[in-house]
Each structure stands twice: as C-alpha cells, then as structure tokens.
Computed example of a mutant assay.
Amino acid sequence: MRAAFASRFDDAAPLAALTVGERPEPVHPDDDWVTVEVRASSLNHHDLWSLRGVGLTEAQLPMILGCDAAGLDPDGNEVVVYPVVPTAGDPRGVSILSEHFPGTLAERVAVPRANLVPLPEGLSLTDAACLPTAWLTAWRMLTTKGRVEDADAVLVQGAGGGVATAAVALAVAMGKRVYATSRDAAKRDRIAGLGATAVEPGARLPERVDVVIETVGAATFDHSLKSAAPMARIVVSGATAGHQPTVNLRRVFAMQLEILGTSMGTPGELYDLLAFCADRQVRPVVDSVVPFSKVEEAFARLHGGEIFGKIVVDHTV
C-alpha cells in the first residue's frame, strides 16, 4: 500500500527524511485490532518532529507518519480514528499512532476497535480528519481543564496554529468573548473573521480573562499571567517558543491562579467534540486540502510555517 513515512532522520532538513512509497499491509497486534480504510488524514507538527528523530529511534524506521484519520471500518461505516493506543514498554503506558505503531498517512491503518468513533451526520470525512489531535487538544483545554462553562472571556495565545485556531473557533461557538494574539497581521484579520478580537502579542486586553489557552510558551507566558482574572485557569499544551518561562509566583498565589498542563484527550471527549461540531455546525478551519499524490507538497507547506488551520490529505486522489 502507498504511504508517507520517515525513512531516516534529519534535524536540519526534515523534509529530506520523508519518503512516499510502498509499505506492507497493516498488522494486528491483538485480536481486538481492526483495519480502517483511510479516506482523509491531516498533518500535525508532530509529523515534522518525527522526521527530525524526536520520539523515534533508528530501530523503529521506517515509520509511517500521521496521527489523524477518518475513513471506513471493516463493515463500511464512516468512523474517526482516536489516535492514542495502549503501548506496553512506553513509560506513559500509551503512545500516539506513528510513535510505536504505524500512522495514518497510508491507504490503511490498524487500530484497536475501541479507538473508532462513529462519524456524526453532517460532518464530512475531510472535516473529521482535522479533529482527533489539534481540535481534541483544544476541546480538552477549554472544557475538562479550563472549565470554560464558568468563564465569560478567553484568551488564546498564538492563534494561527492548529490547536490555538481550534480553541478560538470552539470558544466563539460556546458564546465566549474571545481574545487571540498573533504576530502576523494577516492572521489577525483571519482570526477576527472567526469572531474573536485579534490583538498583537503582549497587548493590554480590555478585561482580564477567566481561561487562557497557552500553546506558545516562554514568549507569551508573562502576558498570560498578567491577562488572567482572579482564580483564572491557564491551560498549557505546548511550548513552541520556549519551555522555561519566568513565572511571577506572587501573582500566581495572590490571584489564586491555576496553571494546568494537558495533551490530547479521551475517546469520550472526542465523541463529545464531534457531537458539538455537528450540533453547532462548527467546522474545522482548513488551510488547504492536498491529494495524497502531492503529500510532499503538504509537508512542505506545513514546514514553511505560513499555514492557518489544518492541512488535510485526501486519500481518494
């Protein structure tokens, strides 16, 4: 079957480590695993890190890339693949597809049957392929960790990337007042188009917020602290611009702030996210849809860093 995979590692030029070619059919480690016919997948920065050798060893090569997918189960039902699988030997007890088990950038992928979530009516396979990693992370940050139902205002740092843009769209759909930062003027215009108030990084907000979605890290963390209302929740799922910020602990205890870490979500949370998107007619922000025959171009666009939303790979062409 055709697949996109890491054939080696190259930290300086990760695209040079990408190979598109034939790989063996999926193998089922246990009887409860099934094969999904992939119809659409989406790219994540995790895929670029894999090409750089982060989280993989030489012994695991070649490794099919990709965490997210939607397609058909063995009975022909449309499903979304939850990408976290039990993994013996991993210190976390689990791993994401493309770490220990082959990923979704292939014609077919093997996963536990319990990882299949039915596709709700009204959502396309292309839309659904965007949701399991970035959008699920944003959903968990807002709901389970951020307790956004008790919030009036939300700040999203670094909107434009997959998780942050998803958080903007979801929080707006929840009826919250949303502020979002971006260094890029063009991205700020697009963020405003989603219903948020777009501001430059570090800008003073007209009010303090109850929930901060923080995926940037050291470059924005002081602004996150200063923008937080008393008893606010600052939820962290990334550190793309530094992982060792200077934290004013006096502000943390005086304002009774909560700093919470998270990643991904549960199958139940993915089910809730899919239902929310279907019921509220929320659709993922899609940067572009690229046919699998041009998957190298999709990786190049992701690596270029100028994307807004998700890059989807259409496996049917």
Rank of each mutant, 00 (worst) to 15 (best):
K176T: 02
V178G: 01
D184A: 03
A186H: 11
K187L: 03
K187T: 01
R190N: 04
I191H: 00
I191W: 01
G193S: 07
L194F: 03
L194A: 04
G195T: 04
V199G: 02
E200C: 00
R204K: 12
R208T: 12
V209R: 00
G217N: 09
A219C: 09
T220R: 01
F221G: 02
D222C: 04
S224N: 09
S224G: 09
K226M: 10
K226E: 13
A229E: 07
P230K: 07
M231E: 11
M231T: 08
M231S: 13
R233H: 13
I234K: 03
I234D: 01
V235S: 04
V236R: 00
T240G: 05
G242E: 07
G242K: 08
H243I: 13
Q244A: 15
T246I: 13
R251A: 14
V252R: 08
E258M: 11
I259E: 07
I259Q: 08
I259C: 10
G261S: 11
G261K: 09
P267V: 12
P267K: 11
L270M: 13
D272P: 10
L273A: 09
L273K: 07
L274V: 08
L274W: 06
L274E: 05
A275F: 06
A275L: 13
A275M: 09
C277Q: 05
Q281V: 11
F292Q: 03
V295P: 02
E296R: 15
E296Y: 06
E297D: 14
E297C: 08
A298C: 12
A300Q: 13
F308K: 09
